[in-house]
Nucleic acid binder design. Sequence first.
RNA 1: GUCCCCAUCGUCUAGCCUGGUUAGGACAGCAGAUUUUCGAUCUGCUAGCAGGGGUUCAAAUCCCCUUGGGGACGCCA
Length: 472
Amino acid sequence: MGSIRVRFAPSPTGYLHLGNIRTALFNYLFAKREGGTFILRIEDTDPERSEAEYRQALTEDLLWMGIRWDEGPEVGGASGPYLASERFSIYRQYAQTLIQEGKAYHCYVTEEEIEEMKRLARAEKRPPRFDNRGRDFSKAEIEKRKAQGIRPTVRFKIENPKLKMNDLVRGEVSFNLDEMLGDFVIQRADGTPTFHLAVCVDDALMNITHVIRGEDHLSNTPKHILLLEAMGFKPPQYGHLSLVHGPGGEPLSKRLESVSVREFRRKGILPQALANYIALLGWAPGDNREIFSWQELQKAFDLKQVNKSRSNYDSQKLDWVNGQHLRILSDEDFSRHALAYLKEQKLLRQDETLVHKILPVFKDNIEHFDQLPERLEVLSDDFQYESPAMIQTPEAKEIFRTALDVLNAGMLLPFDDFAAQIKPKVKAKGKNLFMPLRLALTGKEHGPELKRIFPLFSRDQIKKRFERALAS
RNA sequence: GUCCCCAUCGUCUAGCCUGGUUAGGACAGCAGAUUUUCGAUCUGCUAGCAGGGGUUCAAAUCCCCUUGGGGACGCCA
């Protein structure tokens, strides 16, 4: 089945968020599993909202995730161009043909009239659908409106009131179009196409076999099927993914920064961890596995097992998944990824070789990379103490004095032996002994095991730190 | 309002199609172990079939209704 062709067709009107990237991922996984083709198409049909910056960000985010398109911007392909804005003349042709065949018409109804109509409908508790009034304006009426300077839209005629489809994830779905759909606009008064015309023409011309998209498009699907058929094309198979919502159940929006792909990058989430987590939203492998590598994910993912109900984003579970992925990495891979992150986010403040050497120490200890800069403060000699009170007690001072004595008495010992020497000479023990030691050495209450941190410093550095703690 | 979709622990889910399970796993929470500290790790515990009616010897599972949630109803996508 190498003939599968899917597409991800975002509009460049904001940054990609969790829901968008999930749709992209499911398309990608679905296609790759069958050896199919994944196409990226930019749906910038609305010049007013589309921005080049977002287009750039979008491809960057996709690539970061590890999603590569076989056809699309930059890479090209046989069905290009892949920017809707470069295809306007094609859409216009199809609109023209539909008009000639009597399947669409120039509509001289103004936006003001439609507003008024909808307002009325709502007031009377009727569905606010277009009443098709522009369909049979008389010649005279049209001439009159033309004379007033009204530019027409092109509307597609809805003729079939009932429609059934078989959705890849939801099964059989039927629509009663009579109640909900009026003739809809396929070309704006300024001659630009609407999304409906563009997707249908593009999907058909690009030979898309499966359209996997968000459930918000489910009610658009009858429009698309009707349009496609009117143009003489066979509609693709549709699959509508349930939407992901925020932690409180609120809908995700492109303005919600906390769920944007860029925010996850900033936070230092690994792309494979994000993919792993996102895939688990609405899909489960059937066994009890939770952690997947990219390869395992590609192998295991099956659109048939995607469930129909909505899900909520839970940052705690994402963090956990990311932590698991971090721990799977070898020390070397961890350092490489972490360093790349620090550089990308411009957070590298210390000597690179030194940082590279110390990084593995934190591998078992963090959930995402943005916790690193704070941890790396141990490398500088003048860090702030997280809880100054803890090193100012008489017991703490006693510990520091003893530590200095031990240091001065002989050579630098491994941490366990070092601690063992201090222990019998001071009153404090357990937590009360180790917390002051940790504070004096690292300035923090949390961190890796002290015996891993200890060997990274010279005897002089250690001495200085205890002297400083003693003086604080 | 109308149409469409959905409904298992607080959250993500398995089980539903093909009725018989102590309703399984994970995150979070709580407790313990370990680490002479925190974190990480390990073990255990708490917690769920939205409600009502059918069908059936038997219903999370099949059917209907109610309720709740979501989506669509744009010259946005």
